[in-house]
Amino acid sequence: MTEDILNLMDKRRKAKGEQGEYESIHREVRRKCEEAKEAWLNEKCREIDKFQRQAPNTMYRNVEELIGKKKASSIGCLKAKNGEIIMEKDKILERWSEYIKELFDDERKEIEVMKGNFAGPPILKDEVRTAIWKMKNGKATGLDNIAAEQIKALDEFGINKITELLDEIYETGEIPKEMLKSIFIALPKRMERQNVNSTVLLAL
């Protein structure tokens, strides 16, 4: 899929009411797609021949892509809200930001956080210790790049520091901004990868 084809597809979409023009653009899109597919197949064959002895694993991956057993990597484009194809990185990021804001939009009134601990005793070290040791190893890290294994390796020093931090949050009602940030990874759930609505968002 090339930028030229995407532009033609967008032009075809806008010409739906004009039968003659629509058919002409449709034929051009098909011709361009066939040419792009032929070029892709030729490139894959050259890569297979090149990696036959140098890198067998890479060669096998190319063969699997060629026969349709393995999906090729997705293209760097996305559909805007109005259906227009966007390819610029900054506009793609703006579209994801727009989609996530709409997805998590909350019309409820903001709840006022009470200052001070009126609920009970402070958080205990034993509670923190139990929570830490229940954390599973080998999991992906968040924005802080701190793995569960690293926290466990700090032992009592880490337990003391985390308990102090949690008690401070509990007492003040203020959560550090760094703890409110998340990473979202878009996982396509259908073949239409250009559509943000065809993805599952994984939050880290």
Rank of each mutant, 00 (worst) to 15 (best):
M1H: 14
I5C: 06
L6K: 05
M9T: 00
D10I: 01
D10T: 03
R12P: 01
K14C: 04
K14Y: 05
K16L: 04
K16W: 13
K16A: 13
K16F: 12
G17Y: 06
E18V: 09
E18D: 10
Q19K: 11
E21A: 15
E21K: 15
Y22N: 11
I25V: 00
H26K: 07
R27I: 09
V29D: 02
R31S: 14
R31A: 13
K32A: 06
E35Y: 01
E35L: 12
E35A: 04
K37S: 08
K37D: 08
L41C: 04
E43M: 14
R53P: 09
A55T: 12
A55N: 12
N57G: 10
N57M: 11
N57T: 10
M59N: 01
Y60P: 01
Y60W: 08
R61V: 12
E65S: 05
K70Y: 14
K70A: 07
A72I: 15
S73W: 07
G76Y: 06
L78W: 03
L78Q: 03
K79A: 14
A80R: 15
N82M: 14
E84P: 06
I86V: 10
I86H: 07
I86K: 05
I86Q: 08
E88S: 03
D90F: 10
K91N: 11
I92E: 10
I92R: 05
L93A: 07
W96D: 12
W96F: 14
Y99F: 12
I100C: 00
K101E: 12
E102M: 04
D106S: 07
R108T: 13
R108C: 04
K109R: 14
K109I: 14
I111L: 13
V113H: 10
N117E: 03
N117V: 04
F118E: 13
A119T: 05
A119W: 04
P121N: 11
P121I: 09
P122V: 01
L124G: 07
D126F: 08
V128A: 00
V128K: 00
R129S: 08
R129T: 07
R129A: 10
A131K: 01
A131V: 11
I132A: 00
W133T: 02
W133V: 02
K134I: 13
K134S: 13
M135P: 00
N137A: 02
G138W: 10
G138R: 11
A140T: 08
L143A: 07
A147P: 04
A147T: 06
A148C: 14
Q150M: 10
E156V: 04
F157I: 13
F157H: 12
I159R: 00
I162E: 12
T163S: 01
L166K: 02
D167K: 06
D167P: 00
E168V: 03
E171Y: 02
G173Q: 04
G173T: 02
G173K: 01
P176N: 01
L180Y: 00
I183Y: 08
F184R: 06
A186N: 08
A186H: 08
A186Y: 08
L187S: 02
M191G: 15
E192R: 09
R193E: 10
Q194G: 09
V196R: 06
S198D: 15
V200C: 12
V200T: 12
L201W: 01
L202E: 14
